[in-house]
């Protein structure tokens, strides 16, 4: 059973090579960006040279930690943004391409049910792509820490304490993992919708997938004079996973002060709040309905 799904998911990596090419590309771009920045600031004073990551002139360990977390967070957001686009295109292609190139009859000639096929694609979008993205984030962090360590050491700084000693690695990575997976589950109604459209569309799945997002609010506005649909969709923009931040506390005495609590990303995450948000579960049910519809369309459609 597990081998079965492993083979199905491996297949997705072969077909959709962007799943692993995208993280590699982003990692390369970020690293090149960091290198350029390092070269650029090399022309300035020594204090500034070291200010980027392991700045000696930053007062406390907490602030250094926060500065590094800031860089880490920036990298992670780039990955998450790319992941979002990747998932949309992956889902829309996953059940459409096999019909377009007519390979569906080959896939269906093997002992795999339509439900197994569709679920393997759902799992790829919901779990595998996020995990690959987190691995990409981790690899990018490690590569760039090594690069900056070499740079700091070459400037006479102590990379051991300034960089590695200050990096809340596990905290950052655990947070990236939780946010990415929670984000994917939070967005699961869209994943389900895209999979359904991918199975259903005769042509132009992208257009078909996004049309209702514009058309339904318009019709709703004209005929019902309400905006329930648009609000529901927009509500998905905010992930209910984070504690509210007390910005005032960070600016004590007109000065930027970061407490230990704030520097830790995990401290901002509230899993209980996330899991007790009703619309999370409503979204999962909607996802389940669309996925079931996708399975039925693949099973009953006879246009091959």
């Amino acid at each position: 059973m597990i081998n079965h799904y492993a083979a199905l998911i491996k297949r997705e990596f072969w077909e959709h090579r962007s799943i692993w090419i995208t993280p590699v590309a982003i990692s390369t771009i970020v690293t090149l960006g960091v290198l350029t920045m390092l070269m650029f600031v090399s022309g300035f004073a020594k204090e500034l040279d070291l200010a980027i990551f392991g700045a000696q002139n930053i007062a406390s360990d907490n602030e250094r930690q926060a500065a590094l977390t800031g860089f880490f967070l920036g990298t992670s957001w780039v990955f998450l943004l790319a992941l979002g686009f990747l998932t949309v295109f992956y889902c829309l292609d996953s059940l459409y391409a096999e019909r377009k190139d007519k390979s569906i009859l080959f896939w269906r000639s093997l002992p795999v049910t339509d439900a197994e096929t569709v679920i393997s694609k759902l799992m790829t979008a919901l779990v595998v792509i996020p995990i690959v993205a987190v691995l990409g984030i981790i690899a990018t962090h490690i590569i760039n820490l090594i690069v900056t360590s070499i740079w700091v050491a070459s400037k006479g700084g102590n990379a051991g304490t300034l960089i590695w000693g200050s990096v809340p690695l596990l905290d950052n990575w655990a947070a990236a993992f939780i946010v990415t997976l929670a984000g994917a589950v939070w967005m699961s109604p869209f994943i389900g919708w895209f999979l359904f459209i991918s199975a259903y569309a005769k042509r132009m799945p992208l257009l078909l997938a996004f049309m209702p997002i514009f058309v339904i609010p318009m019709l709703e506005g004209i005929f019902l004079r309400s905006s329930v649909f648009a609000e529901t969709v927009l509500d998905r923009g905010g992930l209910p996973l984070f504690r509210s931040m007390d910005f005032d506390a960070m600016f004590e005495e007109e000065q930027w002060r970061v407490s230990e609590d704030v520097a830790s990303l995990l401290n901002h995450i509230d899993i209980v709040k996330f899991l007790t948000t009703p619309s999370l579960w409503a979204g999962i049910i909607v996802c389940g309905l669309f996925v079931t519809a996708a399975i039925y369309v693949r099973r009953y459609r006879d246009d091959s």
Partner: peptide, 15 residues
């Protein structure tokens, strides 16, 4: 499908 095979048309293998 564990006990049956078919070739439906020539061009069906994924490219």
């Amino acid at each position: 499908m564990q006990n049956i095979c078919f070739i439906a048309d020539v061009a069906v293998l994924p490219r």
